[in-house]
């Protein structure tokens, strides 16, 4: 099961060991920590063994084969991997597109989500309605309607083009321009900021009010309180959102699939990594090649996640390890 390099690299990381509750007074605790741990983990372990482990190992094996879904896989060693990096220009382009997307969409989405969570955590009238309203775009998820809606916003006759025309800027069609299409997907991702916003909101709720009250007594302004209390107390949640956003954005598929009609166009400008992977696997029947792509992506995400975990000890404050 130690196929991926990820587990080994994270293994070395500080895990919540220091924070665990030691069952000091043994009392009625007849089971050891090991037994309790595995008891709680039992459903997960069963799920791993029956639903995840097999398919994962199979995909790893397939990444060294030529497999068209219909005929038995044929062992070709590392040829898929070599081909990816030395021959496939579209693959390198997909990498570039995906990294650009992640680098822009993730921070923008998180900043937006945090800002709105702060506002919608205030005690104002109609809070529930506001929260729900701002969440609506996220409810739409990967709806097929988005393909058309995005053209209504970013097409030639779209509202963005019309608004720019008011300022005398020549109308253009963002969604169908190779240099701007990716931006419409970044905006789409930022637009659907609901999930991290909810997680931020839940995190904000966990910050004890007393801290703010004490700071007020000390004469701290809102800006100071934000940096001295909110941000540090929120770091576990920020960290969580960051990790999840990195993982999810690298695997972003539906937005490009829907908006570009499954092509990643125009001119491969929105050819996300997983979209290309999907096209190779299901449209071109190169499941072996697609599997190799999947494992390279796993390494990329794994390394970045490991880096985030490594850095977390310098900036993430857990309540349980604080004392």
């Amino acid at each position: 099961m130690t196929l991926s390099p990820t587990p080994t690299s994270i293994e070395a990381l500080p895990q919540p060991t220091t924070s665990s509750v030691k069952a000091r007074p043994r009392g009625r605790n007849i089971l050891s920590d090991n037994a309790w741990g595995y008891l709680f983990l039992a459903p997960w372990i069963i799920g791993m063994v029956f639903f995840m482990a097999g398919p994962t190992l199979v995909s790893f094996y397939l990444s060294f084969t030529s497999f068209n879904l219909l005929e038995p896989p044929e062992w070709i060693a590392a040829k898929n991997y070599v081909r990816l990096f030395t021959q496939d220009g579209r693959y390198l382009n997909a990498l570039r597109v995906t990294f650009t997307y992640v680098a822009l969409a993730v921070p923008l989405n998180l900043a937006f989500a945090l800002a709105l969570a702060m506002v919608l955590n205030a005690k104002i009238k109609g809070l529930g309605i506001y929260r729900a309203t701002y969440y609506i775009p996220s409810l739409l998820g990967g709806s097929v309607a988005i393909a058309i809606l995005w053209r209504q916003v970013f097409g030639f006759d779209g509202i963005v083009s019309q608004a720019l025309a008011v300022f005398g800027i020549e109308g253009s069609s963002w969604v169908s321009s190779p240099s701007q299409a990716l931006w419409t997907l970044i905006i789409l991702h930022v637009w659907q900021f609901g999930s991290p916003m909810i997680i931020f909101l839940a995190g904000l709720k966990q910050i004890p009010v007393e801290l703010y009250e004490a700071a007020s007594v000390d004469g701290a302004g809102p800006w100071r309180k934000f940096w001295m209390i909110t941000v540090p107390m929120l770091t576990p949640v920020i960290f969580f959102n960051l990790i999840l956003q990195i993982i999810n954005s690298f695997q972003a598929f539906t937005p490009a699939f829907i908006v570009s009609g499954g092509s990643g166009g125009p001119l491969d400008s929105t050819l996300f990594y997983t979209l290309y992977l999907y096209l190779q696997g299901f449209a071109n029947f190169r499941m072996g090649y697609a599997s190799a792509m999947a494992w390279v992506l796993l390494v990329i995400i794994g390394v970045l996640t490991a880096l985030a975990f490594l850095s977390s000890r310098y900036w993430v404050h857990y309540d349980d390890s604080a004392k």
Partner: peptide
Amino acid sequence: RINFKFKPVLFALMLGTLMLPFHVI
């Protein structure tokens, strides 16, 4: 919360399942 054997490995494994694109499984 619980300290049990192989926890770091299992935790990494758990995160790892998030990282493999689902199309290949």
